[in-house]
Write a protein that binds this DNA or RNA. Structure first.
Lengths: 351, 351
DNA sequence: CTGAAAGCGCTAACAG
DNA sequence: CTGTTAGCGCTTTCAG
């Protein structure tokens, strides 16, 4: 059986309160007493029982991160960023994957593990604006990530989708592209990454006086590599002409590049390509992929900080809760080979 | 304040024991009583307090998975497999990333979160055979993954490294390669993935009567894409001739392919390439990458089952613990474009 | 089939 | 500066 406070107290010849004080770094303990306690702790290999502490304090030191799937590199990298931010603040992260359908997302949100965490970072995927009210029912601090829900009662951290995609499109225009495919639209969507990003594309074309060709706006329901590949196959089959692609995420871009290369199209000479997300692998693809770096580490840090603030606000329970905050992170265009047409470029491999 | 057992009991007009019985699906509860209790639970939105349950029962329903890094796709896919296996068995997974150095691995193993989980799945990376004894000190059920430690007192699940790499090498020999690079060796290592895989390579050459050329055994300390790329650059710089590559993992293979393509080498015509791990992305690279599928889902399921068995064994605490078990999973060679030289092949894109 | 009551190990008033 | 004590919410004997 593991040692308890009482065991330590007995061995050190003090009361459990004193041991507790030492453990929790309370100020007023005489140095020699403290030393005796520390010695007893070491001798017994004592470790506080977290369940008991949680029960008593009402806090677990864990937050949950709800994401669709770790096999999706975007979310694996996000999870890594979040775990780093959390561990720097003394928190552990319980990752919960959800199936992508509305029911599964709701059931995880309401799920039993709820009781085991102090708060939730929720990367919204299947729920939408119409579900904003549902979130109020979850009796736990929560910070939203992503572009599906705005103006709820919860704090929200998101990237500059429109601005980012506008910058990407402007970049292609600047290197001479005129028939630019927007890859990844969700017809009819206004809010959500796809709607916002499409808007950035349209803004850029508009500002440059380049007419919009509906055939260049290519639908892709899901944004995995296989979807980018499939979309590119139909584009090629349809015989649509194009000289640039702004993909709504990196995976779509990578899938499309794969098919273009099979078809003998050269990147960036025949078609320039830019993605969105700055996945690690964009540095290693052939060619390396230009992309928008959406400030993911900043998203993770900000979100963890906001969640922690909400948790502490709730613990002190003094005034009424602060107004929900909306944070937009900074993005950055990263130019790599897939949009570098200059003949005399030094040809760094990007590795 | 959230509802407690007592609240439910009061509303239902029964004692808390009865409520507890209903919640835990104990058999002997009269149907009508049960219904009253269920109604009260629904009315109050009662959810059991997990901290209290954990404190009482000594179990948390969580296991921790210790891995180096989620950004490494191998571990992201492993984590996904483990989470699926765990959630099918009613367990949650706490992922803990470790830095890769010995100290950080030890401190996580001994770390405070220990108290918050019922058991540990530990993918050994920085520790080695000489640390087998250290593992005994961790007072928690544990199952080891990977190839760094054998014959400890812990259960262990691992893949068939030698056999897999032998099969990969034999495959290259079968399609006509004679100067095959083994990419990823760790000089001097005997146990560990690198040592075992090199052994498989040597066995295959030996069996085929192909002489070993030391220049074809290429060192790579770490196994990320960038390391494969760097290694390939030095190979090309050294002017070593080769017509096949068996990489010790997929990332090395993908990095090497990138550099070969820059250098104008055609895959598989000039050089056939095979990797190890069957990462998702091997299906989407250019060309698609042949590889060894090491049975990762099976590893995850087996490991979770074994851990659960240990947890239960400890709970019942009857007889002495069962002998440590060693499980080897089945592998499978997956042939894709990177080793398919047949001229008239249909050229499926593998997507 | 159901109720009463004793803790799991810890924190935090409250007293000394 | 340190000790006593009362629970946190649940599970689990042990009696009815």
């Amino acid at each position: 059986m593991a040692a308890t406070l009482h065991d330590v107290a007995r061995v050190a010849g003090v009361s459990i309160k004193t041991v507790s004080n030492v453990i929790n770094d309370y100020p007023h303990v005489r140095p020699e007493t403290k030393e005796r306690v520390l010695a007893a702790i070491a001798e017994l290999g004592y470790r506080p029982n977290l369940s008991a502490r949680n029960l008593r304090s009402g806090r677990t030191g864990m937050i949950s991160l709800i994401i669709p799937n770790l096999r999706n590199p975007y979310f694996a990298e996000l999870a890594d960023d979040v775990m780093n931010a959390a561990s720097a603040r003394g928190l552990s992260v319980l990752i919960e994957q959800v199936g992508g359908d509305r029911e599964s997302e709701l059931s995880v949100l309401r799920g039993s593990r709820r009781q085991a965490v102090d708060g939730i970072l929720y990367s919204v995927l299947a729920l939408g604006q119409e579900d904003a009210a549902v979130l109020d029912e979850i009796p736990l601090p929560m910070v939203l990530l992503g572009e599906r829900i705005f103006n709820s009662s919860r704090d929200h951290v998101t990237m500059r989708n429109e601005d980012g995609l506008r910058a990407a499109t402007e970049h292609l225009l600047a290197i001479g592209c005129r028939r630019i495919i927007a890859l990844g639209s969700h017809p009819g969507e206004v809010i959500g990454s796809a709607g916002l990003r499409l808007d950035g594309y349209l803004q850029a074309l508009d500002a440059a006086g380049v007419p919009v060709d509906e055939r260049l706006i290519v639908h892709a329901d899901r944004w995995h590599r296989v979807d980018g590949a499939a979309a590119m196959r139909s584009i090629l089959a349809a015989g649509t002409e194009f000289d640039g692609i702004v993909a709504f995420n990196d995976s779509l871009a990578l899938g499309a590049m794969r098919i273009m290369q099979e078809a003998g199209l050269r990147i960036p000479q025949d078609v320039a390509v830019i993605g969105f997300d700055d996945l690690d692998e964009t540095r290693y693809s052939v060619p390396t992929l230009s992309t928008i770096e959406p400030g993911r580490p900043q998203i993770a840090e900000t979100a963890v900080d906001m969640l922690l603030a909400r948790i502490e606000e709730r613990a002190s329970a003094e005034s009424s809760p602060a107004e929900p905050r909306e944070v937009l992170t900074d993005f950055r265009l990263v130019q790599r080979e897939s949009t570098t047409r200059a003949a005399g470029a030094p040809g760094s491999s990007g590795l």
